[in-house]
Amino acid sequence: MNAVMKTLGAGLALGLSLSAQADGQLNVVSWSGYFSPQLLEKFQKETGIKVTVDSYDSNETLLAKLKQGGTGYDVAIPSHQFVPILVQENLLERFDPAQQPYYASVVDNLRKPSWDPEGGYSVPFIWGTTSVVVDTATYKGPTDSLALLFQPPAELQGRINMFDSAGEVIDTASVYLDIPLCSEDPKQMQQVLNLLKAQKPFVKTYSSKAGSIRENLASGEIDMSLFWGGSSMRAREMKPSLRYVYPKEGVMAWVDNLVIPKGSRNPDNAKRFIAFLSQPENAALTQNFLKHQSPIKGVEPFLDASLKDAPELHIPTGTKVLFSKTCSEGAIRLADRVWTNLMR
């Protein structure tokens, strides 16, 4: 809770100051479609703060926006491997959430994580896995390997979507090739490029826009995509023949985090919003909407029944799960070269 809130009641002037703050704005930039209207309405009703949401479709786009000075954003939601980059670039405000009461609700293994070891800059918002979703009405064969995505059978060729985010695509290709994540070896990255170039003629679209991917899967415009677990569940609810795959090579995992960009005009409102989102009942609203896994304890009583046994949210025992890493400058340069070459 912020300093103004702590001293509420100390005097009429402070009370008026808080009231004026509560009637203010909050400018959020996030992955597209991350907030249910119900959640934002609830926050506005409780606080009087109106939330405006802008969106991006890759961590790289967010980094570019913030480096350019943003447009007055108060809250952003980068993936975990980008938090150290944003801190290093001096693009985040330190607000020490680990010292706030709500931080106790964060699941133990995501408190003070490796990407924010002091809990100074970020609070986990949602987490999940990245793998392959395929329409089993079109494809009847085995789904136990990432070969399905990178060396697709005839019935899926030209029916595939890949993310347009270099990091996620290169990470998944590295998992398939059994190459270390964030490799600095040019020969290994050449293998990644060769794989992605060989796959490219079979790729119909490169997009990370979750809503568009879901609609295209449901309508049959595409039959397979690199996708996130919760988003795949939402797609399956539209088209039951869709299956989320747990390949033998493993799946990538990610954590999206709430942060306050440097120069936020409404930092107190940002802190209130982050505390609000970290309450179990509100975190459950987020999970019910996005279908990904929640990093907040105590959400279970508030969850929709459909989440209890959804295969997209329950990773099979023995599945290799790899969290994306924060790459070195050398690895980032190599990855950028691979992506630029691929997109020519």
Score class of each variant (00 low, 15 high):
L12P: 00
G48A: 05
F95R: 03
A13M: 11
E60T: 15
L86H: 10
N2L: 12
V338Y: 01
A147T: 12
A147F: 00
S32D: 10
L66D: 04
E312T: 13
W31S: 12
S207G: 05
S32F: 06
D74K: 06
V132Q: 07
Y121K: 06
G9M: 11
D171Y: 10
P153I: 06
E237W: 12
E60A: 15
L285Y: 03
F150V: 12
P153T: 06
A198Q: 12
S122C: 08
G72R: 08
M233T: 03
S36P: 04
N161I: 03
L12D: 09
S294D: 09
G69Y: 10
P180V: 05
A235H: 08
Y206G: 04
Q287D: 02
S122Q: 05
E329K: 13
P311A: 05
Y176V: 11
D336L: 09
P316A: 10
K271Y: 00
V87L: 03
S278Y: 11
R236F: 01
E41A: 14
N288P: 09
E89C: 06
R214C: 05
K140Q: 15
K6C: 07
L342H: 04
T172S: 07
S324P: 01
L12M: 08
A64E: 14
A137T: 04
F95C: 05
K6I: 11
N90K: 15
M252C: 07
S165K: 01
L110Q: 11
E237Y: 14
L303T: 07
E41M: 10
Q38T: 14
W115K: 04
G229A: 12
G211E: 15
E249V: 10
A305M: 05
M5W: 09
N269A: 11
A154Q: 13
L313C: 05
R243A: 12
A305V: 14
L8N: 02
V134F: 04
V75W: 04
N109T: 07
S58A: 14
R111G: 00
D74C: 03
T129A: 05
R337C: 09
V4T: 13
S17K: 15
P295V: 13
S231K: 05
Y121G: 06
Q88C: 01
Q151L: 12
V192Q: 03
S212Q: 14
W127M: 03
D144F: 02
A3E: 15
G128T: 01
L39E: 08
V321Q: 08
S174E: 10
D54V: 07
Q157M: 13
Q25C: 05
M233A: 11
G141K: 12
G119V: 00
G220Q: 08
R243V: 15
L16K: 13
L149C: 09
Q44M: 07
V203K: 01
Q190D: 14
M238Q: 15
I77N: 06
S241P: 03
V175W: 01
D185N: 15
E155R: 03
R265I: 07
G250Y: 07
D223C: 10
Y102R: 08
S306P: 00
M252A: 08
P180Y: 10
